[in-house]
Every structure is written in C-alpha cells, then in structure tokens.
C-alpha cells in the first residue's frame, strides 16, 4: 500500500461520503421535522441521475442539463408530495413505510420502461474532464474534486440556512417540538412542504452529480437510501451536523475497508482466506460500525438539540 494509493482512496471515500451526505441531509430533516419515513427518497436520487442523462444529452451542456434536471426533480417531488405524502403525515410509520415502498416499486420499474434496464452514463463535462496531479505524479480526476467541492458548498449553505435563518430556526424548533411550532402560528404544512422540496432537490442534485461517475441504472437509489439510513442513525435523527460527520465516516470506512481489508487480513491469514473474509467483512463494516455506535449512543453521535 503506497501513500499515493491511500490518498486516492481517502479522496474516493470523501467523495462517496459527500454524496451520502446530500441524500441523508434531506432525509434527516424530513424525519426530524415531520417524523415521516420516506423510503422513496432514494428513488428521487435515482431520478436526479436519469433526468441528468436525458437533459444533458438534450441540451448538450452539463450545467444546463443539471439545472433542468434539478427543476424537473423538484417538480416531480412536489407532485408526489401533493398526491401521496401529504396524506401520510398523520398516519403511523407502518402506513408511511408501505406507501413509500409501493412508490419505489412503481418508480424503479417505471424508469426501466422509460430508459431501459441497461446502465446509462453521462459524459464528464468538458471543463472538468482533466486530472489533477497529486504527489508522486498520481492523477486524480478533476470532476471528483468538483463533486467534493460542490458537496461541501451545499453543506455550508445548508448549515447557513438551518443555523442562521428564520426558516432554519423554525426547522430546528419543529424537529424537537412540532406542536409548539404550530402553536406559534406557523403554517406547519407549508413548512413541511418546504423541507420536503428542499430534501428532494438535494437528493436529485446528488443523483445528477453522481451520474458522470457512476452507472445510472434502476435500483441505484435503493443502496444509497439504506446507506443514508445508516448515516442518519449514526449521526442522530434530525441533525444536519450529525449527518455530515456520519456521512464522511461511513464514506471513508466503506471505501477504505473495501480497498485495504484484504491487505490488513493478509497479515494474519493466508491469501485465499483473507480474500474471502475480507470481502465479507468489508461489506459488513459500516453496519457493524452502526451497531457499535448505537450500542454506545442509541441517540446517535450528534443528536439534534432538544430531542430526547
């Protein structure tokens, strides 16, 4: 294992973590503020990617395609909110789980019908297609740097909105005590819709940004969704800061575990058994991490204040 390889994997881990954060941020707010479990959030990530495929191809411009994809993802999310989700806020978790599960079945299959089952891709935009030289002449794609940068910028924006604005204050208050906020005369439904729209946009943005580096295929949102759950549970429900920290931890642990677990185990065991154990262990690593965190701190690493 060289320093260069380690550095590349750390960057990969960071970039994966940033993607997870974008998906988890919206989810955690929706959980925290509305106590609403939205399994279809992962589908919105997938839709972001598919819409990017279509609009980038259509316009020939990555930026323009991205903007159009975001707008379309938002419109679709709002339509879903209007048709389905708003009828579920008052229901119990079981109903929410089932209805959003039904939506996943529909949308995963719907995507297959419209775009086909084969993986698609989006070309990396021209102006970000180069590489950046790291130490010892090791190259790292500029686009991935751009992704990390964009994610950090969104994170910063989110922190500003949640921590520094009136809407953010209501959000934080709503996350710990929704009846109180509604007693203050705030239209809780409108607040929910804003939170929801915001979360949808973030998930769509993550999907669109991931499109050039991942294969765009049906079901791609499901894996991300479950990882986002792990992130939220580790970070603490309703906590943006928690989601950020946990997303980076999960991204790094997963990426580094997959690349270095074999080498690590080779120190103790023979090559074939190290390969077998390494594969099993590295795929379970983040879940084990989650179990340990929960065992020590059932409320997560950085629970949102005022929530008990």
């Amino acid at each position: 294992m060289t320093t260069g390889l380690l550095l590349v994997q750390i960057l990969n881990g960071l970039q994966f973590g940033i993607l997870l954060f974008l998906v988890a941020a919206g989810l955690t707010l929706v959980f925290g503020v509305m106590d609403f479990i939205n399994l279809a959030h992962g589908v919105q990530y997938m839709l972001g990617a598919y819409l990017a495929v279509t609009f980038v191809a259509l316009t020939g411009s990555f930026v323009l395609g991205l903007i159009l994809a975001l707008a379309a993802a938002l419109a679709f999310g709002l339509a879903l909110e209007f048709l389905v989700f708003r009828h579920l806020y008052e229901r119990d978790h079981l109903d929410q789980v089932l209805a959003t599960f039904g939506l996943i079945l529909l949308l995963n299959q719907g995507v297959k019908i419209i775009w086909g089952a084969a993986p698609l891709s989006v070309p990396v935009p021209e102006f970000l297609s180069g590489n950046v030289a790291l130490i010892d002449g090791i190259l790292y794609p500029t686009y991935r740097f751009a992704l990390i940068g964009a994610g950090l910028a969104v994170g910063l924006l989110l922190w500003f909105v949640v921590d520094r604005t009136r809407t953010g204050m209501l959000l934080r208050a709503g996350a710990s005590n929704a009846p109180m906020v509604s007693a203050l005369g705030v239209d809780i439904r409108k607040l929910f819709m804003i939170v929801f729209a915001f979360g949808t946009m973030l998930a769509g943005f993550a999907g669109a940004m991931a499109a050039p580096i991942l294969s765009v295929e049906p079901g791609m949102g499901d894996t991300v969704l479950i990882l986002a759950f792990v992130v939220i549970v580790i970070g603490g429900i309703g906590s943006i800061r928690g989601a950020f920290v946990a997303a980076l931890i999960v991204g790094l642990v997963d990426t580094l575990g997959r690349s270095f677990m074999n080498d690590l185990l080779r120190l103790f065991m023979s090559a074939p058994s190290a390969r077998a154990t390494g594969a099993a262990l590295s795929s379970m690593l983040i879940y084990l991490l989650m179990a340990v965190v929960l065992f020590l701190r059932p409320e997560g690493l950085l629970p949102s204040r005022g929530r008990t």
Binding site: H93, I226, F229, V230, V233, A280, M284, Y287
Partner: peptide, 22 residues
C-alpha cells in the same frame, strides 16, 4: 430495541442489508 419509531425501522433495514451483503 434500544431505539424506537423511525430509527427502529431504519436499523432493522440496515441489519437486513448487512446479511444480504454477507
């Protein structure tokens, strides 16, 4: 079972996924 509500749902889901990957 140390958690409840939404967290319980997510954790059971995650453990299920863990066995799947295993």
């Amino acid at each position: 079972l140390r958690t409840r509500g939404v967290t319980f749902i997510m954790i059971t889901l995650a453990f299920g996924q863990m066995v799947y990957f295993l």
